[in-house]
Design a protein around this nucleic acid. Structure first.
Length: 421
RNA sequence: GGAGGGGUGACAGAGUGGUCGAAUGUGCUAGUCUUGAAAACUAGAGUCUGGGAAACUGGACCGAGGGUUCGAAUCCCUCCCCCUCCGCCA
């Protein structure tokens, strides 16, 4: 949520921001509605003031005739007050509807573009693996090695369903535990967060109203979160956090659920795109300073880069174009890992910052040095998702005989060097 | 699923129609006292928002939304949330 005052005073900037993000919103209408709203609000407040001062006299007085005159007069004031309030109601409603659709401003460093195809590579690391034999896909490799079962996955869970078993299951646990050790060295507070959460938290984090289609709902009106960010941010909603504790850093683990609405044709096989997965997520609340947000954003992304480097998997980092940014994001980096079977980079993580867009909706504040309450800034970044990471591990570490070498850092966690038949 | 009890300021907790933005206690800030601290005493202090350069001033906020009333923290309705007990259950 942006501050309406900011929108009024910087209309052109907000318009340009929306355009850069390729988000349609009638901002002129918003200003029009806001003007109406403020006018009515003032009329209502004037009437209330009148009422309040009369109330004082009425309360103090006895049964004098002036008192009953005043009461009669106030009856009329009440009527016009109610009329004005009725007028205000639909205006207020439209105002709110428009306000939640106003996107956050993208940073100046965000490149123009319509979609993820316009994201710009800003870093590459490692050498793309080539093999003296024909590289197999993780699907073949995992099935042959008894690490995954996609047929039964579909049988039991439907489209995009999967089972991990044997070393596939164990490798997932190994990644989780290795990631835990790796990231906790950076001072995060570990957390396991709920995925089944109330609607307000999705509004607060900016996934609703425009992302409703990609969320699973329950018959109780709750939603299944696609990321631990939702629960972790909701954790602090309504809080005034102590500035001494900032930046607050969480490493949050959760199951994640995504309907993948609108991507039916994409990645229909394997572990790249599934409805249900697990993720360690980095989440930060910090002081309301752009410099601090930008600094921590780089830091978060770098944590993940170093993690991938430690697994020795080639990757590149891209900066997302305006059109590939969500409503709430100011700037986003994606890290994409090399997938030899497809000869493509595939997204593994995403690091974003939001300024106070989320915290304004969630009402997360802190007291600054001058004792003033301010909305905190928020950021988040993937630490590591499973099972998607298995795709890159297995394809990059495959050998001609179909066995898979275990990345060195994972060996202590898996208890072996090689996954073979 | 059944029965009951609740949601008031940073926290605890009073307040059942009028001068209540709200007693009191704790905590907080400043001062007095003290070498310093503690204790004691004194004073101050909510958040959001409109207007104003400021002093100041209008409005809103006692879970949310409606209603009754000249007037609602207080009465009525709906919803949300929390707690206790019973049942079921990993």
């Amino acid at each position: 949520m942006l501050d309406i005052k900011f929108i009024r005073e910087n209309l052109d900037i907000v318009k340009a921001g929306a355009k850069k993000k390729h988000i349609e919103i009638d901002l002129d209408r918003l200003i029009e509605v806001d003007t109406q709203r403020r006018g009515l609000l003032q009329e209502v407040e004037t009437l209330r003031a009148e009422q309040n001062s009369a109330t004082e006299h009425i309360a103090r007085g006895d049964d004098s005739p002036q008192r009953s005159v005043l009461i009669t007069e106030m009856r009329l004031v009440k009527e016009s007050l109610q009329k004005k309030e009725k007028e205000l109601e639909p205006v207020q409603r439209e105002w709110e509807l428009l306000m939640v659709q106003v996107p956050n401003l993208p940073d100046v460093s965000v490149p123009d573009g319509e979609s993820d195809e316009d994201n710009q590579e800003i870093k590459t690391w490692g050498e793309k693996k080539t093999f003296p034999f024909e590289a197999k896909s993780h699907i073949d490799l995992m099935q042959t090695l008894g690490m995954a079962d996609f047929e039964r996955g579909a049988k039991v869970a439907g489209f995009r369903g999967y089972f991990l078993k044997g070393d596939g299951a164990l490798l997932s646990f190994a990644v989780w535990r290795y990631a835990q050790d790796f990231f906790l060295k950076e001072g995060f507070i570990p957390m396991i967060v709920p995925s089944l959460v109330r609607r307000v938290n999705f509004l607060g984090t900016g996934y609703i109203p425009q992302g409703e289609d990609d969320l699973y709902t329950t018959q109780d009106g709750d939603y299944l979160a696609g990321t631990a960010e939702v629960g972790a941010m909701g954790y602090h909603s309504g809080d005034v956090v102590d500035v001494k504790d900032t930046p607050i850093k969480y490493l949050a683990f959760s199951p994640c659920f995504r309907r993948e609405a609108g991507s039916h044709g994409k990645d229909v096989k394997g572990l790249i795109r599934v409805h249900e997965f697990f993720k360690w997520e980095q989440i930060i609340l910090c002081e309301a300073s752009h410099e601090e947000s930008a600094r921590l954003h780089e830091w978060l992304n770098n944590n993940t880069e170093r993690f991938i480097e430690s697994l020795n998997i080639p990757y590149r980092t891209v900066i997302n174009s305006g059109g590939d940014l969500g409503l709430a994001q100011v700037k986003k980096y994606d890290i994409e890992l090399w997938v030899p079977g497809e000869e493509k980079y595939r997204e593994i993580s995403s690091a974003s910052y939001f300024h106070d867009f989320q915290t304004r909706r969630l009402n997360i504040r802190y007291k600054d040095k001058n004792g003033k309450l301010r909305f905190a800034h928020s950021l988040n970044a993937t630490a590591i998702p499973t099972p998607r990471i298995l795709v890159s591990i297995i394809e990059n570490y495959q050998q001609e005989d179909g066995s898979v070498v275990v990345p060195e850092v994972l060996r202590p966690y898996l208890g072996k060097d090689l996954i073979g038949k």
